[in-house]
Computed example of a mutant assay.
Amino acid sequence: MSRVTTVVRELRPDDSLPSEATELGRLGLFLACLTVASAASYWVALRLRGVPIVGTLASPNVAGLAVPTLVYARYRGVSLSFGPPERSRLGDAAATALAPALAVIAASVLFAVGFDASLAALLGWTYHPEASVATAAVRTAEDAALTGLGFGILVAAVFDLASSRVGLSSARAVATTAALATFFHSVLRDAAFTLVAFPKPWRVSVVSLLLVATVCGCVAAGVTYRGVVERSIRPLSRPTLAPAFAFGLFAVAALGTVFADVPGGVEHALWALAFGVAALGFGRSKSAWVPAATMALFSLSIRLVGFVELALL
């Protein structure tokens, strides 16, 4: 009889969401709002293109990413440090900043030697045939720096919230940060920018569905995590959570579709690696400049490596 009672208690739904689900749901809602802010900033940037005085301020990586993330971090009580890393962590910081760029070079060599193909061709990069490496570096340096600033701050804020509010260990916080940042960059942001550049009614529906799926997927992930930690099905037994899991599966499928595309999937995999390394660097240094430098060097390297490949052909 006691066993039957235990099983019934396990199957009895709980009326409250686990803390992990609540905090991850808030992160999902933040990413959804950040997508709207990035799209609005991108729209402004398109309308103001050619006006140098507002170029940096109108950048989606600043107005639509860095600033909203800082505002949200302040609202949640997250204090991001922009001081330099401690001297004992300078070596780790340098290794973190260089690792994704070295990964891009390694991928370029691998494709050239193993598949007789260039990374630039796979990613669709093209350059003016008479441009020099210095010219390409100068033209991409500003965008790479702004990209690094925006995504570096995002990585720092998400990692801090995942570790301090969700209660994840350092390794799990790194994995969570990489997954959420990759989903935002490769799914949400790309879909929103495409909607701004090519507005279609069906694209509005797709983006709206993705935003809902982001929040629901984060809630479902938090509930699942609590069930795994407790080794119990009780957190998963609420019938009202069925829509959250359904939309969560849609979000997972959307992310899987991004990686399933062989040419584009390579770039998204490199971005995921860069986000993970940046999160690891921030976890060790506690300086927001480390993930910012990591993402900036990665963004610059992925373009310059492609330029060098095309120049050598």
Score class of each variant (00 low, 15 high):
1 M>H: 12
3 R>N: 08
4 V>G: 04
6 T>E: 15
14 D>L: 14
20 E>K: 13
24 L>R: 11
27 L>R: 09
27 L>E: 10
29 L>F: 12
30 F>D: 00
31 L>E: 03
33 C>R: 09
39 A>S: 05
40 A>L: 14
41 S>R: 00
43 W>M: 10
46 L>M: 09
48 L>E: 10
49 R>T: 14
53 I>L: 15
53 I>G: 11
54 V>T: 10
62 V>C: 02
65 L>W: 00
66 A>C: 09
66 A>Y: 05
67 V>S: 01
68 P>V: 01
71 V>L: 15
73 A>L: 11
74 R>D: 11
78 V>E: 12
78 V>W: 07
81 S>T: 11
83 G>F: 01
84 P>L: 13
87 R>K: 06
89 R>W: 03
90 L>D: 00
102 L>A: 15
104 V>A: 05
112 A>H: 13
113 V>A: 15
113 V>P: 04
115 F>S: 13
115 F>V: 13
116 D>T: 11
117 A>R: 15
118 S>F: 07
121 A>L: 11
124 G>D: 08
131 A>V: 02
134 A>H: 09
135 T>S: 13
140 T>L: 15
141 A>M: 10
144 A>G: 04
144 A>I: 03
147 T>G: 13
149 L>I: 12
150 G>R: 06
151 F>H: 11
152 G>F: 03
153 I>A: 09
158 V>M: 01
161 L>W: 06
165 R>T: 05
166 V>D: 02
171 A>S: 15
172 R>L: 13
172 R>H: 14
175 A>D: 11
176 T>Y: 08
176 T>H: 08
177 T>H: 00
177 T>I: 01
178 A>R: 03
180 L>C: 08
185 H>F: 13
188 L>T: 03
190 D>F: 09
192 A>P: 01
198 F>R: 14
201 P>W: 02
205 S>W: 13
207 V>Q: 02
209 L>G: 15
209 L>T: 14
210 L>Q: 07
215 V>A: 09
216 C>G: 08
219 V>K: 01
220 A>M: 04
226 R>H: 08
229 V>C: 06
235 P>K: 10
236 L>C: 03
239 P>H: 07
242 A>F: 11
246 A>S: 12
247 F>M: 06
247 F>A: 10
252 V>K: 01
253 A>Y: 12
254 A>P: 04
255 L>D: 06
255 L>R: 04
256 G>Q: 09
259 F>Y: 15
259 F>T: 09
260 A>Q: 05
260 A>D: 08
262 V>R: 15
262 V>K: 11
265 G>I: 07
269 A>F: 12
269 A>Q: 09
270 L>T: 01
272 A>C: 12
273 L>K: 03
275 F>N: 04
276 G>I: 06
279 A>P: 01
279 A>I: 01
282 F>D: 00
284 R>L: 10
289 W>T: 05
292 A>R: 04
294 T>G: 02
303 R>M: 13
304 L>Q: 03
308 V>E: 03
310 L>F: 02
310 L>I: 09
313 L>A: 13
